[in-house]
Design a binder for these strands. Structure first.
Lengths: 213, 213
DNA sequence: ACAGATGGGATAGTGGCACTATTCAATGAG
DNA sequence: CTCATTGAATAGTGCCACTATCCCATCTGT
C-alpha cells in the first residue's frame, strides 16, 4: 500500500499523513526504494488511532507521540504500558498546595477514596497525574461555589467503579498486548464522549421527568 | 467594585476582562460616569463561570456567548432554558447519514434507548445535538474497530441514568432559576473532568487488581 | 489645581497549534 | 519518454484566545 492508497483508505490527506510521519506519530513505511514506501494494515490502524486521539480526544500531537512511545515499548509489562499510556494522557494542571480550595478538595477526595477502599490509589496518589487532575477539578468547583464533599463524591466513585469493571471486561476481549493497550486508550479517550453524551441524554430525560416541559 | 478590583479578585487580567466585555460574555458594569464603571458580585460570579467554561470545559468563546444568552433569557421556562443551554454546548459534528458506520451506530443507540425506556429521547432524537453527538462517537468507535452494540451500551446508559439522578438532586439544592441553570452548566461541563478522573482512577485500580503489577 | 492612575473604545499584534502548500530531486508506471 | 508520485525540507495559513498599545475623558490624592 502506497502513501496515496493509505490516504484514500483513511480519508486523511497526504499532506497530513506526511506531517504525522514527520512528527513520529506514524512509523515510516517499508522503503521499496529511495522514492517509494510500502504501508500495511498496521499503519492504517495506527493512523486511525492517531486521528481519533487528535480529533475526537483533542489530544495535542506532542502528547499523542508520548503515548504511542509507551504503547510501542515492548520492554514494558502490560500493566506498566497500560498505566504509562494513561498517565501520559491527562492535561497537566498542577494544584497549588497552599490554596485552601485545593486543601479542601484533597481532604474530601482522600476521604472518598479511603471510604470505597482505594487506599492504594491514595497512597501512590501523589504520583498519579489522574489523582492530581481530580484534586484540581474538585478545587475549581469549590472556587466556583459548587463544593463537593465526600458524600457527594462517593456515589459517583462507586458508579465509576462499575463502569471501570465494564471497561476492563471489554479490554480483556482483545488478545494481543498491543491491541489491549490500544483498547485501553480507546476506552479512556474515545469512549468518554459516548459516556458523557449518555449522561447528558439522561439529564435531559430526568429533567423533563421531574419538571415537565 | 471597579475593573481593577474585579481583575484582582478573579485573578483574571484586565485585558482579558475587557476582551470578555467586548465579546459579550460579561455584561457591562454600571457606568458611574464616562470613564468609570461599577461591578458587583454577579459580575464576579459570571466571570468565574466564563473562565471555567473556557478553561476547564474548553468551550469556544463564541459558544459560551450562546449558552449565556440562553441562561439570561428570562422569558424562557426553566426546563427550556436548561435544555437550551445544554443544547448549545456540544461541539457540532454532523454524522453522515449514508455512512454504514453511522447507520450501525444509530441502530444500536436507538435499540439501547428503547430498551431502557428513553423513547422520548429517540423520538426527538433527531433534534438533539447530544443524540447526534452520541451517534457520531459510536460511529467513530465502529470505524476504529471497536464496535459498540446495544448490549455494550445498555449498562453504561443505566449507570448514567443513576448519575443523572444524582446530578439533578444536586441541582435542586439551588433555589433561584439562574442558579439552577448555572448549576446545570457546571454539572454538565465542569463536573465532567471529575467523573472522568474517577473513572480512570477506577480503571487503574481495577487493572492492578486483575493483572497485578 | 494638577500629576498620575483609571476607564472604555478601537485596533493591531502575539503565540500556539494543527495542518497545508510549495519546491526539489529521484524514481516508477503506462 | 513523459508525467505522476514520493520523501525531505521549509515556509505559509487559519483559527483562536488572548495581549498590547493608543487615545482621551475623567477621577483621585495631595
Amino acid at each position: 500500500m502506497r502513501l496515496s492508497d493509505l490516504s484514500e483508505q483513511s480519508q486523511v490527506s497526504i499532506a497530513t499523513i506526511k506531517y504525522y510521519l514527520r512528527e513520529g506519530l506514524l512509523p515510516p513505511g517499508h522503503l521499496v526504494n529511495t522514492t517509494q514506501a510500502d504501508y500495511d494494515e498496521s499503519h492504517l490502524r495506527r493512523l486511525r488511532l492517531v486521528r481519533a486521539m487528535v480529533q475526537v480526544g483533542r489530544i495535542p500531537v506532542a502528547t499523542v507521540r508520548e503515548v504511542l512511545t509507551q504503547v510501542d515499548d515492548e520492554s514494558l509489562s502490560r500493566t506498566i504500558r497500560l498505566g504509562a499510556a494513561l498517565w501520559a494522557l491527562p492535561r497537566p494542571a498542577e494544584p497549588e498546595p497552599e490554596d485552601p480550595a485545593v486543601l479542601a478538595a484533597r481532604r474530601e477526595v482522600d476521604l472518598t477514596l479511603a471510604r470505597i477502599g482505594w487506599n492504594d490509589a491514595a497512597e501512590i496518589g501523589e504520583l498519579s497525574p489522574i489523582y492530581r487532575e481530580l484534586i484540581t477539578s474538585v478545587a475549581t468547583l469549590n472556587r466556583l461555589g459548587y463544593p463537593l464533599d465526600a458524600d457527594d463524591l462517593t456515589p459517583y466513585a462507586e458508579q465509576m467503579e462499575q463502569t471501570a469493571a465494564h471497561d476492563l471486561d471489554r479490554m480483556e476481549r482483545h488478545t494481543t498486548p498491543v491491541e489491549q493497550v490500544e483498547s485501553a486508550i480507546v476506552s479512556a479517550v474515545l469512549f468518554e464522549p459516548v459516556l458523557l453524551s449518555l449522561r447528558r441524554l439522561a439529564q435531559e430525560q430526568e429533567a423533563t421527568r421531574r419538571f415537565g416541559l
